[in-house]
């Protein structure tokens, strides 16, 4: 891999554009990914915010579930925000019937744990490994992590709940750094992708 890693954003649904912009500003070559052949060409992948039920249904319909699982299992760096965090959970609480996750992080995630839209909020979040003070946390109908297994490391909490986790090459946050001008987490992930290459 060259110094500029190619990072895909799963573009089935969600705030794909904001992630593409954030990745580009973090010096990655960012591109949308909707098909297995597009997935094969990226060094790392972002699972964006959106509706996790919709994303997992579309992924299943268009033959993306298995290719995604295989690449994540093989160690491709992956970063999920909000809905993306749900997709990376090995187990979720309150899944609608038939909702499938990709898995990848040994954690249990509770959907919409912080409440409905009226409870959506912004708050400063300290993230271990991110220098320069807390990041701007934008939480929208956000999930939280109920518990993590031994391999997963909790890197941020808010209000006593786990909101960011890293397990080797997989990263997940309950909040949406892509909706802010603060792209330190995207730079952090880009560095993960570079290191994995």
């Amino acid at each position: 891999m060259s110094d500029t890693p190619v990072i895909g954003v799963l573009a089935l649904q969600g705030d794909v554009r904001e992630h593409l912009i954030a990745l580009a500003s973090a010096d990655a070559l960012a591109r949308p990914v909707r098909r297995p052949e597009e997935l094969a060409e990226v060094d790392g992948l972002v699972l964006p915010g959106g509706e996790s039920t919709t994303m997992s249904k579309l992924a299943a319909l268009f033959g993306m579930l298995e290719p995604l699982r295989e690449r994540i299992a093989a160690g491709m760096p992956v970063y999920g925000t909000c809905a993306g965090m749900i997709l990376l959970a090995d187990k979720i609480i309150d899944p609608r019937s038939g909702q499938e996750t990709l898995g990848g992080i040994d954690m249990i995630v509770r959907r919409n744990a912080f409440g409905r839209q009226n409870e959506s909020f912004e708050a400063a979040v300290e993230v271990a490994g991110i220098d320069g003070g807390p990041v701007e946390g934008v939480f929208i109908r956000a999930p939280w992590v109920e518990s993590v297994g031994a391999a997963a490391e909790v890197i941020a909490e808010h209000g006593g709940h786990i909101v960011a986790v890293r397990q080797q090459n997989a990263l997940a946050t309950s909040f949406h750094p892509e909706l802010t001008g603060d792209h330190r987490l995207h730079a952090y992930f880009t560095e993960m992708v570079r290191a994995a290459g």
Binding site: L12, G14, D15, R17, G50, N118, A123, G137, I140
Partner: peptide, 28 residues
């Protein structure tokens, strides 16, 4: 523009949270 944030006083109903919710629906 970012609203001043703190860890202890979460802000609800901000423009970013309202507009950001619609961003999550895109492509749908």
């Amino acid at each position: 523009p970012s609203t001043p944030q703190s860890a202890d006083n979460p802000a609800t109903g901000t423009a970013r949270v309202k507009r950001g919710m619609a961003e999550q629906l895109k492509g749908g």
